[in-house]
């Protein structure tokens, strides 16, 4: 790791000012993506702004029909939260399946979302649920937030403060893990609320997380795994192939994981 300057603000205001003043600085959340990247010298920010001292960025609340999750809330906190387990159990399961117990004690929802790793779990879940990413500047719907591999709508100096997740959907996320990295080889999130059905896929898209429209249309007619029989799988041409799985295999897995997610979302 190259040397850097270090700031540890204790309020969001201080953090915002530091970010505005240091255009090249990086925000540090749980550090479970950023620090490994810096060790490999794939990133060498001149300064880090550590958000771990900003208490107002952590915590989970139910406001009306929405779960409001602070950006610095760890995966373990979401997985273990009674509020999340009652309002949106599938989201607790998603968070509890990220990495391993030690990773979940440090990694945060804000860091995961900002990083938009094409194999990360939260992007699929939040896209399917129609979540809103709130920053120091604006509110961004998940559908506009995740733009491409490791890229988001975030601008320089913009800090994610919280994520607003509507409750009330039948929701489940099913992931086929890469057994070595524990990231998703393919992960599929399915949400159904009234007439709205969303199917979001992670781990597979050459352009990152995406929605699978054909499956959504079929499931909107009848919300059962059988509805997916005969639905054309996403074209492998738009999917990743690597040493872990070919694009064709990933395409096949999307169908399998989507069926499992529908079953789980139906409480079966």
């Amino acid at each position: 790791m190259y040397a850097f300057d270090y700031h540890r603000p204790t309020t969001l205001k201080q953090a915002g000012n530091l970010a505005a003043k240091n255009a090249e600085a990086k925000l540090l959340a749980g550090g479970h993506t950023l620090l490994p990247t810096m060790k490999q010298r794939l990133a060498s920010p001149p300064a880090l702004i550590d958000l771990s001292g900003v208490a107002e960025l952590s915590g989970i609340a139910l406001k009306g029909r929405n779960l409001v999750i602070g950006a610095m809330t760890t995966h373990a906190e979401v997985a273990g939260s009674d509020l999340v387990k009652a309002a949106l159990p599938g989201l607790a399961v998603l968070a509890g399946g990220i990495g391993d117990p030690h990773v979940r004690h440090r990694g945060t929802i804000g860091g995961s979302v900002a990083n938009n790793d094409p194999s990360a779990d939260y992007p699929a879940g939040l896209l399917a649920l129609g979540a809103t990413i709130v920053t120091t500047k604006r509110r961004i719907p998940a559908s506009e937030f995740f733009t491409s591999l490791f890229s988001t709508a975030l601008e320089e100096g913009e800090i994610i403060t919280r994520i607003i997740v509507p409750t009330g959907a039948k929701f489940a996320y099913q992931k086929f893990r890469n057994p070595a990295s524990r990231y998703a080889m393919v992960g599929v999130a399915v949400a159904k609320k009234g007439a709205r059905v969303a199917v979001a896929v992670t781990g597979a898209g050459a352009d990152g997380v995406f929605r699978w429209a054909e499956a959504e249309a079929a499931l909107a007619r009848r919300f059962t795994p059988k509805s997916l029989d005969g639905v054309a799988l996403p074209d492998p041409k738009g999917l990743n192939g690597d040493i872990h799985a070919s694009a064709e295999y990933r395409s096949h897995l999307i169908g399998v994981m989507a069926r499992r997610a529908v079953l789980a979302a139906s409480g079966k």
Binding site: Y6, L28, G31, H32, L35, D50, A76, H102, H105
Partner: peptide, 26 residues
């Protein structure tokens, strides 16, 4: 040193974490 193996696990505020992927200053 790549956050995979867990040989560096210690408890911080009562929770197991990988100390190779945490800054001392944090």
């Amino acid at each position: 040193d790549t956050s995979q193996c867990g040989a560096c696990v210690v408890h911080v505020n009562g929770k197991a974490i990988k100390s190779c992927t945490t800054l001392a200053l944090s």
